[in-house]
Amino acid sequence: MASIPGTIFINYRKDDSSWNALALYNELQKYFTKEQIFKDFNTILPGDDFVVSIDNALRKCDVLIVVVGKNWLQIKDVAGKRRLDDADDFVRLEIATALARGIQVIPVLFDDVPMPRPDELPDDMKALCRRQFIEIDSKRFDDDVRNLAEAIKKVLPDGVIRVTPGQRETAHSSQPYNAGAGTGSNPPPMQKPDNNLVWAILSTILCCLPLGIVAIISATKVDNLWNSGQHSEAVREAKKAKDWAIYSAIAGVVVIILYFIIAVGSGSY
């Protein structure tokens, strides 16, 4: 399928927001496939040029989520220098690269942290302040992440999530979260299935057997299952909807043919 894959990268600072990022990563999997969301994508191997590494990683990125926690702005290194002022700081490099490249960047503010002001940020990050942010509160976590997911869906190429296996090999291999799972091969990517309602309606209305109704019943379940995170059940139900629409159509054709044979055989024409 020649479609543009939609990929979401989560940018965060370990010392500031590792739990925020983890919670976000898990919750976003309700809306997107695991293969689409990358956390810790910037793992850099010894000898790698990290500017090049970040550049390569971001090439596959459609949306960069910037997790901003309580200490995001002020956190300092051992020398007492603010991390964001370090030109080689990963968080800064990723954000600056994404901004420079015109990637959709969504600041996500945790724990009532205010949006940083331009004068608080280094020059190559100032454009971040002009990006529409989303606030996430632990008390409204589900709702807030849903809003974020809606916002992401709007900017993804198709509004739908498609991952093609093999397209993201590099990102996978540099992604410790998956590597740690040690599955060897990636699970087949999943996208929200079409509920096949068109075919269900067609077969209900146009076939001479009311089998299509089973297809419609299956179609009603697809979205709910998907939205509640039961992805494989949703895919199964979508397939059931399609199958029953097909059975209905086949049954209709068979009935017509049988009718013809019987009618011709009994000489009623």
Partner: peptide, 12 residues
């Protein structure tokens, strides 16, 4: 338009 529940209710 893709509202299977409404379609189901209408048909029934």
């Amino acid at each position: 338009l893709n509202k299977p529940m409404i379609v189901l209710c209408l048909v029934v």
